[in-house]
Design a binder for these strands. Structure first.
Length: 130
DNA sequence: GCGGTGACTGAGC
DNA sequence: CGCTCAGCCACCG
């Protein structure tokens, strides 16, 4: 048990919330933070996805959590330390039918009017216990 | 164990 | 419209 119990619960909640984003739709880090009850922690939501395991054995990993459906509040894919990672997200989104426009400055944008997903509460009822 | 570093955001200039 | 600033807090050196 690495992290504190509370931190673990937060990570868990974030992953479950991200899993509820429908295929072909996108939402923001801030909205996920809002859905899990901590609207001020959008940044930590980003951390959760950044540290999402690639290990197939892990309960939550980059295969079973649609991390690509989370973008920033401006409607663009947040730039990474590694540029390839940003492109990978665009590719993953296009792969599920999301139109990703490339702006002049190299920014990758998605239209919230077309595929934004911003429910007030999680469709599953908000809670998930294991 | 301390301090810099972010896949963030809304407010304020 | 664009830049800074202050909260945020797990991670990693």
């Amino acid at each position: 048990m690495p992290r504190s119990e509370e931190a673990q619960a937060f990570f868990h909640a974030v992953y479950l919330a991200v899993r509820e984003i429908p295929r072909g739709k996108v939402t923001t880090y801030g909205h996920i933070a809002h859905l899990v009850g901590t609207p001020q922690r959008a940044r930590q939501v980003g951390l959760c996805l950044k540290h999402l395991p690639s290990d197939p054995e892990a309960r939550f990993n980059s295969d079973n959590v649609p991390w690509q459906r989370v973008i920033n509040s401006r409607g663009t894919i947040s730039p990474r330390a590694v540029p390839e990672g940003t492109q990978a997200q665009a590719t993953a989104l296009r792969g599920e039918g999301v139109e990703v426009r490339t702006l002049a400055l190299g920014e990758l944008a998605v239209d919230f009017e077309v595929c934004g997903w911003f429910p007030d509460v999680l469709p599953s009822g908000g809670e998930q216990e294991s």
